[in-house]
């Protein structure tokens, strides 16, 4: 794995390191994601998968290394600037705005009027209404637009969160265990939904469900103790002896 500087990656992570109280959660990690690539990160608990996502979206600050997305170093930017640069994040626990309606949740994710005065004078236009309506259709919530989000079921909240990401339309989407905690039927419906929304963008998924991983991944990165243990196609990593030992073996 080496960076060829002439190739344009959608996302290039190099030498990324962060430690919490002396414990290196991510240790000199390098990772390259192409345009329109779907990359799945797997690994045992505590391998640093979620921390990598936190580092990319600015929730955690790196001690060393760079995260270059479309020519911009994300390690020097604030969370909201990173979002504005085109990075979207789906959280492990559905986090929607419980006091607002489904419509308002989606509307707030629309990537315009994000400054203080921009939002003060923002008036929804036809394009926004169209986009929100279309997304609500996709996430099976077209009949719930005026419902308060806090009253939705767990699965519906998860869909709403996906919908908020869709309205945001990020060039790089990060999904943290998108099918965790779902019933079998919800899981199937969500998997279908994810298939639709991961088109035309780069996606990084952290997931434990191996059938789901095999289903969507273009390439798989296996993390262990904060660094990359193995990388390649699903078949490749599955046949890697070290991967079997630390993760897939049991």
């Amino acid at each position: 794995m080496h960076a060829s500087k002439d190739k344009d990656f959608a996302l290039a992570i190099e030498g990324l390191t962060v430690s919490f109280d002396g414990f290196k959660a991510v240790d000199d990690l390098s990772l390259y994601v192409d345009d329109n690539e779907i990359r799945v990160i797997i690994g045992p608990n505590g391998a640093g998968k979620t921390t990598v996502l936190d580092l990319i979206c600015g929730r955690t600050k790196a001690d060393a290394g760079s995260i270059v997305f479309k020519g911009k170093d994300l390690t020097k930017m604030k969370e909201n600037q990173i979002v504005q640069a085109g990075v979207g994040r789906f959280f492990q626990n559905p986090s929607v705005y419980e006091d607002l309606t489904v419509y308002e949740n989606l509307e707030l994710s629309y990537p315009r009027g994000r400054s203080v005065f921009g939002s003060l004078f923002f008036r929804p236009d036809a394009a926004l209404v169209e986009r929100v309506t279309a997304v609500a259709e996709t996430i099976f919530l077209a009949d719930h637009l005026q419902d308060i989000a806090g009253e939705l079921s767990h699965g519906q909240k998860q869909w709403l969160e996906i919908g908020m990401l869709l309205v945001q339309d990020p060039a790089l989407m990060m999904l943290d265990e998108p099918v965790a905690g779902m019933s079998v039927s919800e899981r199937r419906q969500t998997a279908e939904l994810l298939h639709q929304i991961i088109q035309d963008r780069s996606v990084i998924v952290v997931e434990h469900d191996m059938s789901f991983v095999a289903d969507i991944a273009h390439r798989v990165t296996v993390m262990h103790q904060g660094s990359v243990l193995s990388e390649g196609s699903m078949q490749h990593v599955q046949s890697d002896a070290r991967v079997k030992e630390v993760y897939l073996g049991h």
Partner: peptide, 9 residues
């Protein structure tokens, strides 16, 4: 936190 990740300061 979620508002930050919707792109607002």
């Amino acid at each position: 936190d979620r508002v930050r990740f919707s792109g607002y300061s």
